[in-house]
Amino acid sequence: MVKHLLIFLFAAFLVLVSTAEQKDCTFPRYKSNDKRKKGEDQIELLKGRRYQFEDKYYKYHVGICTDAMDPYPEDKKDVWTDAAVIQINKTNSEDAHVIGKITEADIIAGPDWVMLEYNNGEKYGTHCEGQDGNNENRRAKIMFICDHTVDDGEPYIIEEQNGKTESCYYLFGFDTQVVCKTTTPKVTVKSGLSVGSVLLIVFVCVAGVYLLAGLLYNRFVVHAKGIEQIPNLSFWRDFGNLQADGCDLVCRSGRSREPRTYKGIGDDQLGEDEPITSDEHLLPM
């Protein structure tokens, strides 16, 4: 019984020690905590999370203010101490590098973005050779970008800038609404058809059924041939004239011209402007 109690106390002690030694980002280049507090506050909900993703050639392990992997492989515990970002070749696991450390962090914050930088990674072997002949240490930059449509998000590789003599880096993107400070609501895109689209589809379907049914009826019941198979052909032939008549009736408001009457020779000498409507004057008295 005493033995089991001692084991339990020892296990509890280990848990407390591991909790007390939980690592976090340290910013040795900042003299004041106020300079980095804004950025840390914006990514507070993401701190302590680990992510794993890959591109065409490499796998990446990224920790947000925590170790990139837990636990580390036995043969890498000493080499990968405090590693925040680790790159592993997909075809050769021995080709692995620490890109940045959580004990060498920088942070910059804007209204809707945060840049977290891990420095002092392993040295480049053949890239980023300075004028002094020494290769630079790797570094990782994680750009947290406000996106109201993404709840938490996860990092992804954008590029590795290793074609310079200094300031080489790995750039990672991280789209998330966690760093959003604006009150812009989520943009929701409504799926489905509009009312106009539905009406157009219904019209096309009805017209198609009307035309097909009319053709079949005229061909097999009425035994029509050629163009006569079109349903209600006489109506469609007069359709343009009907439209013109309707337009003339509705749109033209002027008086129509009175028909001209025939006047014979010498009628102008009668001095009558009104047209002659009867021929009674021609009868003998």
Rank of each mutant, 00 (worst) to 15 (best):
N134E: 10
I157E: 06
K23E: 11
A140K: 06
A11G: 07
H4S: 12
V15F: 13
L45N: 14
K263Y: 01
F10H: 05
D267R: 09
Y262D: 03
K101F: 01
L216S: 14
N135L: 03
K101Y: 00
N134I: 02
D245N: 11
S194F: 00
F53M: 05
A68G: 09
E166G: 05
L6E: 11
E122D: 15
L14E: 08
V221M: 03
I230Q: 02
S93W: 00
E160H: 10
D132N: 09
Q161Y: 10
K35P: 01
H281P: 00
Y210V: 12
I230M: 11
F8T: 09
D70N: 15
E94N: 09
P111L: 08
V17R: 14
E74A: 08
R257I: 07
G271Y: 04
Y170G: 01
L216E: 13
V2A: 15
Q177N: 15
S253A: 13
F27K: 04
V150I: 15
S93H: 06
P73F: 06
V150Y: 11
S278Y: 01
Y170E: 01
P71F: 07
V206C: 13
E228H: 08
Q87M: 14
N135R: 06
C168A: 05
G246A: 13
M143C: 01
N135P: 00
V187G: 00
E122P: 02
I88T: 15
F8L: 15
G196S: 10
Y262L: 12
E159L: 12
F53I: 04
I88M: 06
V17D: 09
I99E: 03
R36P: 00
E21T: 08
F203N: 06
D175P: 14
E274V: 07
T149M: 14
E44I: 09
S93T: 12
N218V: 03
A105W: 04
I201K: 12
Q269E: 07
Y60E: 02
Q177F: 01
E154P: 02
L5K: 14
I86K: 05
V85E: 02
K90A: 07
C168F: 05
E228K: 12
N120P: 00
D41I: 10
E258D: 10
G48Y: 05
I157K: 10
P284V: 04
N137Y: 01
G192V: 05
L215Q: 03
D273V: 09
N89L: 07
